[in-house]
C-alpha cells in the first residue's frame, strides 16, 4: 500500500514539476505571472485528445505537434498582450496589470473551451495496462508520462546551465536591470522565456491527458498547483521546481490515501504556508534573493 502510494506520488509529482517549470520560466524570466497558464495546458489536453480520438495520432506524437504550437501561442500572447503593458514603463503597475490581463485571458479561454468542448469530463485510454515495477503495479501511461517529464525537465536544466543561451536566460532571471549591460537583449529573452513556458505548458498538458480525466473548468486548479510549486522551488529555479513538484505530488497522494481525498488542496496549501513562513524565497532560493 505504502509503496504503491509513494510510486503514484512520484509520478504525479513529475507531472506537476513539468507544469511548474513552464510557469517558473514565464515568471522568472519574463516577469509575468500568467494566471491563464492552466488554460494553455488544458487547451493542449483537448487538442491531443482530439488528435487521438479522431485520427488515432498517439499522445506522444501529439506532444510533438502541440509543443511548438504552445511556443507559438506563448509568443503571440507576449507580443500582443504583454508588450503593450511592458511599454507603459510603470514598474509598480506592471505586476498588477499583467495579473489582471492574464486573469481576463483565463476567463476568455475557459469560456471558449466550455462552448467548444462542453463541460463534461474527458479522457481516453492509451497504454493503460499495468506494469510491474519493483513489486508495485503502475499503469504504463503514467510511467511513460513520468519518463518524458523527467527527460524534458532535465534536458531543459542542462541547456540552461550549459549553453550560452541558457546563461543569458539565467542572467535575465537573476538581474534584469543589469543583464543588458553585458549585451543581452532582455526584452527578446523575456519573450522567449514566455514562449518556452507556453511550450512546456503544452507538453505538460499532452502528458497529463494520457492518464488524467479533465474538464474545461480545471485550468484554475492546474494553475494554482503550478504556482505553489513555483514559489516552493524558488522563482525561476528549474531544479527547484522539479524537487518541489515531486514533494507536492507525494504530499497530495499521501493525504488522499491516509487522511481524506477531499483534503488534497488543504494539504497543498498547508505545505505552501509552511514554506512561506519558513523560507519565503523558496526551498532553494537564496536569502534576500
Amino acid at each position: 500500500m505504502l509503496a504503491s502510494t509513494l510510486a503514484l506520488g512520484i509520478i504525479l509529482g513529475g507531472t506537476y514539476a513539468l507544469l511548474a517549470m513552464g510557469l517558473t520560466l514565464q515568471y522568472g524570466i519574463a516577469r509575468i505571472l500568467n494566471l491563464a497558464y492552466g488554460e494553455f495546458m488544458l487547451l493542449s489536453c483537448f487538442v491531443v485528445t482530439g488528435l487521438f480520438t479522431a485520427w488515432g495520432i498517439g499522445p506522444l506524437l501529439g506532444l510533438l505537434v502541440v509543443t511548438p504550437a504552445g511556443y507559438a501561442l506563448g509568443w503571440l500572447v507576449h507580443a500582443g498582450m504583454m508588450s503593450p503593458l511592458l511599454r507603459r514603463g510603470d514598474a509598480g503597475r506592471l505586476e498588477v496589470d499583467t495579473i489582471l490581463a492574464t486573469f481576463g485571458l483565463l476567463f476568455v479561454l475557459q469560456g471558449i473551451m466550455l462552448i467548444v468542448f462542453g463541460s463534461d469530463f474527458t479522457s481516453y485510454s492509451y497504454l493503460d495496462q499495468g506494469v510491474s515495477l519493483l513489486g508495485v503495479t503502475v499503469a504504463a501511461n503514467r510511467l511513460v508520462a513520468l519518463a518524458v517529464s523527467l527527460a524534458i525537465g532535465l534536458g531543459l536544466y542542462a541547456v540552461l546551465m550549459r549553453s550560452n543561451w541558457g546563461r543569458a536566460m539565467r542572467a535575465v532571471a537573476l538581474a534584469p536591470q543589469s543583464a543588458w549591460l553585458v549585451g543581452i537583449d532582455v526584452d527578446r529573452m523575456g519573450r522567449q522565456g514566455f514562449a518556452l513556458g507556453g511550450a512546456l505548458a503544452a507538453a505538460g498538458g499532452a502528458l497529463v491527458s494520457m492518464f488524467l480525466t479533465f474538464s474545461a473548468a480545471d485550468g484554475v486548479v492546474f494553475t494554482m498547483k503550478a504556482l505553489i510549486v513555483v514559489i516552493m522551488g524558488g522563482v525561476g529555479n528549474v531544479l527547484g521546481a522539479l524537487v518541489a513538484g515531486l514533494l507536492l505530488g507525494l504530499a497530495e497522494v499521501l493525504v488522499a490515501a491516509f487522511i481524506d481525498p477531499g483534503l488534497t488542496l488543504a494539504a497543498t496549501y498547508a505545505l505552501f504556508l509552511v514554506v512561506l513562513l519558513w523560507r519565503p524565497t523558496g526551498l532553494f532560493g537564496r536569502v534576500g534573493g
Partner: peptide
C-alpha cells in the same frame, strides 16, 4: 448563460487596456 465567463474575461481585458 454560456457566454458568461468570456464576457467577464473581456471585461477584465477592457479595464486593463482601455480604462487603467
Amino acid at each position: 448563460p454560456d457566454h458568461f465567463s468570456i464576457l467577464l474575461g473581456l471585461m477584465f481585458l477592457a479595464v486593463v487596456y482601455a480604462l487603467p
